[in-house]
Structure formats: C-alpha cells, structure tokens
Design a protein around this nucleic acid. Structure first.
Lengths: 131, 131
DNA sequence: CATCGAAAACTACCTTGGTAGTATTACCGC
DNA sequence: GCGGTAATACTACCAAGGTAGTTTTCGATG
C-alpha cells in the first residue's frame, strides 16, 4: 500500500475542524479533540470518535495507542490540505486565476486597509523574487 | 415564504458546472445543458435531468415549459454563489483573512508576473477608493 | 387516428459526511 | 480479583450529491 491516494482533500466542516485541532495541538486523544472543539459540548464524544475512525480510513489521520486510549495525529500536512482545498476552489470558481479571485473578493467583501497593505507588500516582494 | 433560504450555497461539482452553463448560455433545455458539458457525452441525459430537478428543489434553478420541454434558468446570481462559496472557503481555511489566503497561494502556486501586476493594480486602486 | 420518439416522471442505488446510541472491553483502584 | 468507568467497537440513520435505468406520457407526423 504505498499508493498515496492523492484523491484530493475536500474535507467537510467537522473533518476540517478536527484536523485544525490536530495541527494546532499535535497528537491528541478523542477527549482532547472533543474538548477543544468550541466549548466541547457541541458534539457527542462518539461523534468525534467515529469521525476520527472514518478519517483514518481516508488516510487523513493515524493513531497509536497509549494504554487504553488512541492518540491521534494528523497524517497530512496543513499546508498541503489548505493548498489543495484553496486550489480546488480557485479552479472551480475562477478557472485558476488568483487575480480573478482577488478581484471578486475585493468587490464583494470588506477588506481592511491593513489587509490591503499586507497584500501589496507581499506582491511587491514576490515580484522582486521573480524576475 | 419570503425567506430567501440563505442556507449557503455550497455546490457540488456537477451542480456548479450546470449553473455555469446556465449563467453563460442563459435559459436552456436539458438537452442543451448536457450538450454543453464537456463534449456532452460525459453524463447521461437523465443524470442532468435528475440534477436539475434536485437543484430546483433547492431553489438554484427554476423552469418553465415550452411545449413538452422544460426550459431551465438560473434562479441565483453567479456573483452571489461565487461570493458565498469563496467566502465560505476563506472562513474555513483562513479565518476570513484575504491576506492570509493570498500569502498562502503565492507561496504554494505558480502565479504569473502578469497576474501579480494585475493584483497589485487592483490593490492600489482599492486603497485610493478607501481612504 | 395510430404510432413512435423524445421528454419528463419515477425509482433505485452508491458514497460520503455527519450524528450518535448501544454494546463490549480493558484498565485502574481498592 | 472485582467492579466501575471510560474507551473503543459496532450498528444505525439521515441527507445530499451523483449516476442512471425504466416507465409513462404527450405531442408531432404520416
């Protein structure tokens, strides 16, 4: 099974939130993950446990045992998932053009002056590096 | 029922592609939609018809009859769907920060010099309008 | 008017994400 | 060693997206 199922990561809400907990906190028990998710009373313990099992089937997480408990950790990198999800959306909605997306979002959302400045700086630096 | 089901538009692949056909070509029969989708032999006629019916239930499209045929048209605007989908992803992945998203994508994708320039221009103009 | 072809209606099935209850099991403390 | 508790395992459902076959219907055309 070396096949790296690059199926494409298109995670649902709960799956993504669980991944974000694992990325932020590192290896965690089901307990920990549940507690971390917004106040911790949002989902039944077994819901988290079930999702983690399903996610392990998909290769998103893996676990080891520590005594009785399963300690889960992310099996895919955050940047990787973020990239594929963002790229996916970019392709689906804007034919892959970052400029088109930025254009659309500038027109349709509030973007603070601070954010504008940050983006501009990034672009400038990027252009320099490019040449 | 004036309630405009702002349920959030999170469309699947096929649904989005169908919408894109309707946005681009305007009102269309099932035939037309099917023909338009990549060469037209990708999906069975009934697949398109079924999806359109389901999408009508969700309020994404509506139809009128022309003789025997149903003529479908988009019931939601492209910019609206695009905005909600893009915003949704922005929230889910980048806590709503456009700057973070741009940063991530600049680091992880190829962006042409041309695109960089376009984005920069947009930002500059935006800043002016803002003041 | 009979028929045939195309269109819609109906039905069915699969997958995935999400949600959680119930049943087992195994460790920990006494 | 035994019991209780907490963890996993098992099972079950629902909804939505997707995919398409089968059946019915209706209108055009000879």
């Amino acid at each position: 099974m070396n096949n790296q199922h690059h199926k494409q990561h298109r995670l649902g809400d709960l799956q993504l939130r669980i991944m974000q907990v694992l990325w932020a906190r590192g290896a965690s028990t089901v307990q920990k993950v549940q507690a971390e998710l917004n106040a911790g009373d949002e989902f039944a313990y077994t819901t988290i446990a079930t999702m983690l099992r399903k996610m392990e089937d998909r290769g998103l997480v893996r676990h080891e045992t520590a005594g009785r408990r399963f300690v889960y950790q992310a099996a895919v990198e955050e940047s990787e998932v973020t990239r594929t999800m963002a790229t996916d959306m970019l392709e689906r909605l804007f034919e892959g053009s970052l400029a088109d997306m930025v254009h659309h979002l500038l027109d349709n959302r509030d973007v603070s002056a601070d954010e504008l400045a940050r983006i501009e700086k990034m672009i400038v630096q990027r252009k320099k590096k490019k040449t």
